[in-house]
Design a protein around this nucleic acid. Structure first.
Lengths: 122, 122
DNA sequence: CAGGATCCTATCCGATACTG
DNA sequence: CAGTATCGGATAGGATCCTG
């Protein structure tokens, strides 16, 4: 099991140590803060995009990682996936309400970090 | 360069591609959302702790990762480090104002994720 | 076009041993 | 006590080829 286990640890449930951080929220956080997670969400916030458009938009993402990231985000309910059975097949991705909420929070966190430790006297 | 480069990429500052995500904010986010980052911050939010106490508190962290995580967090200005030159040496870690702000934002994000996609109709 | 399968590298992280 | 140094396994992420 080479690839599947990377983001599917959730359903695999092999060894559940449960000792540290197997909570689903952490899982989602990891997906969102993964290398491409944020950028996918941000790209989709402005408009629904096709797989191909997403690839161009993200500039530098590999097919594997884009597919993987999207799968995780869809699974988490942050991204919506719509398939139109045409030829060639056409798949459109969009952000969900939940996804929008999460990016908002994430950006707030980002803002705070961006402001830096300037305000802190310590 | 086995270990040093892991969290010290910040000061290296060699190639600033700027194309995707070399921004310092992302660095900090990675540190905070790293395996032990959050837990360190949360542990220190309630009280200042010594290295040893932190180890017990975090239950399961290796010395290496604790030291590494702390170094990154101190470097980022989220954690404060105080050394008292006694024998044996005594080092206390505490959270900064900036650190507190960041964990707050992070927890808000966590809350939102925890609530799940329930509210979303989509 | 939208991915899946495969291979490979870089990095993460833990265990262990050692130092001031 | 508070770390540093080093080794080795596990994972994330990328490149490439292939298919419906």
């Amino acid at each position: 099991m080479g690839e599947g286990a990377q983001l599917a640890r959730v359903e695999a449930g092999g060894r559940s140590d449960a000792s540290h951080e197997d909570c689903p929220a952490r899982e989602v956080l990891n997906h969102v803060t993964s290398r491409w997670g944020v950028w996918v969400l941000i790209a989709l916030r402005d408009a629904d995009l096709r797989y191909y458009e997403l690839r161009r938009s993200l500039q530098g993402v590999s097919e594997k990682m884009l597919a993987q990231t999207l799968r995780a985000l869809v699974h988490d309910g942050l991204v919506r996936r719509e398939v139109e059975p045409t030829t060639p097949p056409q798949v459109t991705y969009g952000i969900t309400t939940f996804g929008t909420e999460v990016v908002e929070s994430l950006e707030e966190l980002f803002q705070r970090i961006g402001r830096g430790p300037g305000a802190a006297a310590n």
